[in-house]
Write a protein that binds this DNA or RNA. Sequence first.
DNA 1: TATGAATGAGCCTTCATTCAT
DNA 2: TATGAATGAAGGCTCATTCAT
Lengths: 201, 201, 201, 201
Amino acid sequence: MSPKVVDKSEKKNHILKAAIRVFAESGLANTKMAHVAQAAGIGKGTIYEYFKSKDELFWMAFEVFVEEMGVLIERKLIDVEDPVEQIRVYIMAWSEMLNSEFREFANLMIEIWAESMRKGQDKGLAAMTEMYYQYRLQIKSILDQGVLQKKFRPMNTLAVAAMIIGSMDGLFLQWLMDKDLFPIEEALKEFADIVITGLSE
Amino acid sequence: MSPKVVDKSEKKNHILKAAIRVFAESGLANTKMAHVAQAAGIGKGTIYEYFKSKDELFWMAFEVFVEEMGVLIERKLIDVEDPVEQIRVYIMAWSEMLNSEFREFANLMIEIWAESMRKGQDKGLAAMTEMYYQYRLQIKSILDQGVLQKKFRPMNTLAVAAMIIGSMDGLFLQWLMDKDLFPIEEALKEFADIVITGLSE
Amino acid sequence: MSPKVVDKSEKKNHILKAAIRVFAESGLANTKMAHVAQAAGIGKGTIYEYFKSKDELFWMAFEVFVEEMGVLIERKLIDVEDPVEQIRVYIMAWSEMLNSEFREFANLMIEIWAESMRKGQDKGLAAMTEMYYQYRLQIKSILDQGVLQKKFRPMNTLAVAAMIIGSMDGLFLQWLMDKDLFPIEEALKEFADIVITGLSE
Amino acid sequence: MSPKVVDKSEKKNHILKAAIRVFAESGLANTKMAHVAQAAGIGKGTIYEYFKSKDELFWMAFEVFVEEMGVLIERKLIDVEDPVEQIRVYIMAWSEMLNSEFREFANLMIEIWAESMRKGQDKGLAAMTEMYYQYRLQIKSILDQGVLQKKFRPMNTLAVAAMIIGSMDGLFLQWLMDKDLFPIEEALKEFADIVITGLSE
DNA sequence: TATGAATGAGCCTTCATTCAT
DNA sequence: TATGAATGAAGGCTCATTCAT
């Protein structure tokens, strides 16, 4: 009776999921739209019904990625009160990521980094900055709380927040390069210890 | 009778320097050989007199980059004895890089990361792993010394070394994204303090 | 819902026809894909929807050429019984070719010869040898019949078959070089007479 | 005392000899000037001291080839009086070629054929026509003599001459394609028999 | 004269995007 | 709405030719 009803939003999401997988595997420049279409089980042209261009697809994939990461981390923090413990939980949330479906997103993240750094890629840089900005704010607010409670020594909390974020990323990448070198979970635990010790009053 | 004489090694190096600049700016896939040629002030075809392909050029550029970084760091470490101080010097050497001609290499490094992570890119991954392997060993040996001298607490020195390297990279990238957010030198100093405090007996 | 429907086989054939024309005119190395595309009235990229490479296009064009030649000759032989007459018909079938749409194939044949002879061009050589092998067998079987019926003298029928094929080709090429020198049909008639007289008991 | 004296003509010939070898092996379009230079044991640029272009080199190589073939055939004919026997000798001279240093020229001949046929290649066509014109005239004059002496039946001697030339070429090519198929010398003998029988009064 | 380093026009091929169905 | 056939701009690479030495 009614015409075929397709949940546009759902389908869009379906394509994005496929795109994330393919972008993660091949990078932006090396990913072919045909490959994304195949991965999504649809025709090439259909992608363009939902996304204006390859570029838009890429950055929307990125947004989905960031969002899902955010949700995962938020869930972890909800039940924790102590700032010191929150820092530890925050750091350990990354460990969770590595043992989940997020693992495949890792390469996407690197790709996004690379893409973001390119001169003239304001869109990418903005998206990237936006993502880290949020993460940084989260951590900064934890640190501020800790300093207030005299659990952490006074510091440039924004810079330290950036440092923590960056360090986790970098550590993660080290592990990605050679997974047998060290166990990532333990390394993150160690990292958390060092940071907490190093920041404590 | 005698043909035009050219210092092939010198010219090769000249092209590599230009290539590094261009690759850093545009990435591997987005860099055009014509652009590299223009940056080097030579003709397109000339590049192929010195390099078999765009790919070879890219990875040779990487090698030059690693080598020059290594030399710079080595120089810094020569006069320092104390392991604790060596760690600090090592970390600060990165700061030096950022205020030198190496600054332009930063994006190249990200690009190489992205390229290295791609599945099936064994060559890239190998080169990348090799680079970090060396850096890691340097730091590990410093840490081992420090543990031996009871200046650092016992730890998985290899994992911590990887962590330090990764953290520096990550911190650096945070700064690259938004240079106004915090002063990188101070952040590195702070990072060195945290690490040293966190690792101390 | 349903995509544009195209008879892929038909279009492939259309491209092949154009390719034969262009290859015949310019040879393999001198033919530009853009020119083939233009001759077929399509875009450059479209050729690659149907053929993997210029090379594949060339050899498939060859196959079409051989096939069409074979059909034409077969038709001529069907109604003839006498081996002597069959030889004459076979030879004259070439004459037919020259006054038909096949005329344009002539240069393609030369091109294929040249391409086939190249060292290391096994594919070409194989295709070429295969083509002549079939023609040779046809003629050999006619000659064998004739010898059996005591209409031809005993001989190495395979060698003579090769000779007849080769001679026709060669005569044809002589004519191609300078069409005003002699009428090809009469020359072929004369050739047929000489061969038949020369082979008769 | 005197400056280095180089026999320009000699060196030119040296380059031509090398060029013939390389062209024969790879064809015109696939032959690289660098390869010719290497085969001649000289530098790339030096070729241009003696030849204006690749094209000129190719056609001059062709001329040398024709010339040497002519000399070889002339030598054979000198001592023969009978036209019938001259035809046989002429045909058998080809056999000689196949067992001499000329063997490598065979592919060059095919290449020249292909090149000559191309539309708009007037230079090539002219050179080719010129070559065959001479051969044809030689044979025609033998045939005319034979007809005059009532040893051959009346015929269009020019057309038959072209036919003989073409047939030998074609037969030769058949053999080149598959040397094990039949012995070329015997096939040429057989061909001579057929022709002589077919042409006889 | 001899050389080969340098060059850039030219071409095959890829692939994001369009659009007829 | 969904499709994939068609397209042509773009880019890596080759190689005949030039020219400084």
